[in-house]
Design a protein around this nucleic acid. Structure first.
Length: 548
DNA sequence: GTACTGACTTGACTTTAAGTTT
DNA sequence: AAACTTAAAGTCAAGTCAGTAC
């Protein structure tokens, strides 16, 4: 039934210019020295380039981490000449400080460039964008998302990654697979080089691919979210979530029934699904141990990740979750659950070690196969999309009051958005400048308050003929003050919450567009330019009465 | 069922550009 | 016009999920 199976082809015509490669390595000046064991050493170009990657990271904490250093040193040695390898045997004896200083100076110099030089760079970037940043797909000129190939450097995974510090190698034309249509003008590899392959596969959407050397996974160049191909897929995603809305009651009834099943695998499936639905947890594929950071999702939860409290803070049957999820972001939550769920969890945990799987009879593939039977196109992540979007719609209804002005309404919108971000556990590190910027804002508010009381005093003491004008003036100031205060509240509430991810990936944009239309809020207040481009389909489509 | 691959979406963070203040 | 602040764009890692081979 899905679009894919009915007509597998994604395009008929595809033409593009291929990728933009990372700039070649520029050797550092000879007066910038590297020291080994206190003695100056001139490195071969290959070894020097990799050394500069480390030097550039010297200020980061991870260059002090054992795993990082060990991985780096191992890969660095591979790039050394035999003589270098014989000599450089201990990373601790390597002194990269001159290199590090050199790069800091370089970045300072870049900041201090004249306007003219900056303009030149900008023009060159624009030229590159115009030449390589677009493709032709089926009669449309479409923007490409990432037409530049990732430069070489040291891999830094998120969290406690066993491969941190490994060398991410330089991608060359012979690593590149080009995908385009037969009847298009094929992109030319740089002079004297060849592509790995040119293929014409219209069952996929990517233009360029290569295999990355850290995990051995494939990287792609694909189209921008504003493109037809991405937009249609996005729309389809929300339509699937809306279909879930129609049958979610039935599914909930069923999994509650399944908590009582005689079969362990069915009980586990039903409890896991309950978590995915209620807490918006991710599916949780199993991961290769030792290849990636130790993170989990619902199906891969281990006994050590939850604690059961028959009674906690006056509530019955409380489950405490504490685990690292995607990107090693901590998920911590204490939730009361139904008695049956609680009893099942006790059962699942019986006679298990902390590092045993909580759902030992379940994985994402089993779960998704089951979901597929409940509804066409249903998978675990559809619940996240559905619950996020329905929460936004419902929160907007609760929080928006007709008599408020635009800034207050936008605060309500952001609060609804925040409720979703909290549900989905979209956290961020508080911005480094957070305290400072709060203070600045507070200072502005104080100044505005003073200004207002001045204006009010003037109003009182003024004569009748000036009253109207001065009244208007203080009204205006009052409005400005209110706006600042709303801004401060919003910023404070948003300290550790990231709204972007849910806005871009989970919230059906038609809900937001409809809300804007209903309350006479310009869409620009909610979506910036890029977002409006991405959601153009929704802006065109949704009326003020759109219901998710 | 299990292991593995490929394609595509999601995610936090960093860098750059734009806007505002001094 | 420099300095600072904030918003947007870019980066690239890490998920999801379907398909294939055994």
């Amino acid at each position: 039934k899905s679009l894919k199976r009915e007509h597998g082809s994604k395009w008929k015509f595809l033409e593009h210019k291929g990728p933009v490669f990372a700039p070649p390595y520029e050797p550092i000046p000879s007066n910038v020295k590297f020291f080994y064991d206190g003695k100056h050493m001139k490195l071969s170009p290959g070894a020097e380039e990799v050394a500069t990657f480390f030097a550039k990271m010297l200020d980061h904490e991870y260059t002090t981490k054992d795993i990082f250093r060990k991985n780096f040193f191992k890969d660095w040695k591979k790039e050394m000449t035999a003589e270098e390898r014989a000599k450089i045997t201990d990373l601790k004896k390597c002194d990269f400080t001159e290199m590090s200083e050199y790069f800091k100076a370089q970045s300072e110099a870049r900041k201090a460039m004249t306007k003219d030089e900056k303009l030149k760079i900008k023009a060159e970037n624009e030229r590159l964008l115009q030449e390589y940043g677009f493709c032709i797909m089926d009669n449309h000129r479409e923007r490409i998302a990432n037409f530049r190939i990732e430069p070489p450097g040291l891999f830094r995974g998120r969290g406690d990654h066993p491969k941190m510090g490994m060398l991410k190698r330089r991608i060359r034309p012979q690593d590149i697979i080009i995908n385009c249509s037969k009847d298009s003008k094929h992109p030319e590899p740089p002079p004297g080089t060849k592509w790995k392959e040119v293929r014409h596969d219209n069952k996929v959407t990517w233009l360029v691919s290569w295999t990355e050397n850290i995990q051995g996974s494939i990287k792609y160049i694909m189209l921008n979210p504003s493109s037809r191909i991405k937009g249609e897929k996005d729309w389809q995603k929300y339509e699937t979530a809306r279909r879930l809305k129609k049958c979610v009651d039935r599914i909930r009834t069923q999994y509650r029934e399944d908590w009582k099943s005689k079969e362990m695998r069915i009980r586990q499936r039903a409890v896991a699904l309950y978590f995915i639905d209620k807490l918006a947890l991710r599916a949780g594929n199993e991961k290769e141990e030792g290849e990636t950071a130790d993170t989990v999702g619902c199906c891969s939860l281990r006994v050590e990740h939850i604690k059961l409290y028959p009674e906690n803070e006056g509530l019955e049957y409380v489950v405490e979750f504490d685990f690292l999820g995607k990107d090693s972001i901590r998920y911590y939550n204490k939730v009361p659950v139904e008695k049956r769920v609680f009893k099942n969890l006790q059962l699942f945990m019986e006679n298990k070690e902390p590092d045993d799987d909580l759902f030992d009879r379940l994985n994402t593939s089993v779960l998704n196969k089951h979901l597929q039977e409940l509804m066409d196109g249903l998978t675990a992540k559809v619940f996240r999309t559905y619950n996020a979007s329905i929460t936004l719609q419902q929160q907007l209804k609760v929080l928006t009051s007709a008599d408020e002005n635009i800034p207050a309404k936008i605060l309500s919108y952001n609060r609804a958005n925040r409720a979703v971000a909290i549900l989905c556990n979209h956290q961020r590190a508080p911005p480094k400048t957070f305290e400072k910027s709060m203070q600045n804002l507070q200072a502005k508010i104080d100044a505005k308050r003073d200004q207002l009381s001045d204006a009010k005093r003037e109003l009182k003491s003024s004569k009748a003929d000036a009253k109207v004008r001065r009244d208007e003036k203080s009204k205006k100031i009052e409005e400005q003050l209110m706006k600042l205060e709303v801004q401060a509240t919003d910023r404070e509430e948003n300290k550790q919450i990231a709204l972007g991810t849910s806005k871009l990936n989970y919230l059906d944009p038609r809900i937001s567009v409809a809300w804007c239309k209903k309350w006479g809020i310009p869409v620009e207040k909610i979506y910036n330019k890029t977002q409006r481009e991405k959601f153009a389909w929704a802006i065109d489509m949704a009326d003020d009465d759109f219901e998710f």
